[in-house]
């Protein structure tokens, strides 16, 4: 008993308390930028958010009001295009990587997917510019969608692979043991078991793609007019924010804040959906 009351032991407790205090402070520090972001976007942006903002086109310079209907639709089109490329390629490559684990090809693909995941999005934008925009001789929604798709692929591949791997091998063996062929096992037994996890990966990758600006600057470019043509430049929320934030007009700046708020709410909503899905898994 005596040694527990010794000064040495008390000093240990004090050290522990100091360490815990720093850990808690750091955790709180993490929250500060988040609250600042939320505070400023709401404070600056909320006044410009009204029905017109979602339904009107941008007004010419000098006129107040107007909205970003074209950017909302443009972002939706770009994310859809990106998903059309990223989801099937990501899911299928993820399944391949999880089923064939140890030979040379999957190992090298897995490594390259990591590299692609770490590639700055602006580089992906430049590559999309050189391979699609230059030959097509036009900025286009299509090239922007492809750039977003390329950003989504490694995210989806990784989560799909991990989630398929999480399905216990005993489940796979049970299926083989019943004389169920491998492809049916993967499609009807393994994939349903991994589905929720895969969905969360897909949702997160959509949130990521919706928030990308850099790869769109060289590809989709942005457009002040209504356009849903895939071979023409198209507006997007992020490029709208970029253009409006650097413009020398107060009204435009306020609209950039409002668009930021819309984007944050959208991405947060996707994250909440992700949380709900992953909680249901347990």
């Amino acid at each position: 008993m005596e040694e527990y009351n010794s000064t040495k032991y008390k000093w240990r407790i004090r050290k522990s308390n100091i360490a815990v205090m720093f850990a808690v402070l750091s955790a709180l520090l993490v929250l500060i930028p988040l609250f600042l972001i939320l505070f400023y976007t709401v404070q600056q942006g909320i006044s410009s958010i009204n029905w017109d903002f979602f339904t009107q086109m941008p007004k010419p310079v000098g006129e107040t009001g107007g909205g970003m209907a074209n950017a909302l639709v443009g972002s939706a089109i770009l994310v859809l295009l990106g998903s059309a490329l990223g989801i099937p390629v990501g899911v299928m490559s993820g399944i391949y990587l999880s089923e064939e684990s140890d030979s040379f090809l999957p190992k090298s693909i897995r490594f390259l997917v990591e590299v692609l995941n770490g590639t700055p999005s602006i580089v992906i934008g430049i590559v999309a510019y050189i391979t699609f925009v230059v030959p097509m001789k036009s900025f286009s929604a299509l090239s922007g969608g492809i750039a977003l798709g390329i950003i989504m692929i490694p995210l989806i591949t990784r989560t799909t692979e991990e989630m398929v791997r999480l399905v216990p091998s005993t489940v796979r063996e049970a299926s083989f043991g019943l004389g169920i062929p491998k492809w049916k096992t993967t499609l009807h037994v393994i994939l349903p078991a991994a589905m929720k996890g895969m969905l969360t990966g897909i949702i997160l990758s959509i949130a990521r793609a919706a928030g990308e600006t850099a790869p769109l600057l060289f590809t989709a470019l942005g457009n002040r007019f209504w356009s849903t043509n895939l071979d023409q430049p198209i507006a997007s929320i992020t490029v709208f924010i970029y253009d409006y934030a650097k413009a020398p007009f107060d009204d435009w700046n306020r609209q950039a804040w409002a668009a930021s708020l819309v984007l944050i709410v959208f991405v947060t909503t996707l994250n909440v959906i992700f949380k709900i899905i992953s909680r249901k898994r347990k």
Binding site: V171, E173, A174, G177, L178, G179
Partner: peptide, 18 residues
């Protein structure tokens, strides 16, 4: 085909989870 004729029960119960 062989595994349809020669079925198997495993050590740990492994019903299909979904």
């Amino acid at each position: 085909i062989l595994r349809r004729k020669v079925g198997m029960v495993f050590q740990k119960p492994n019903p299909f989870p979904t």
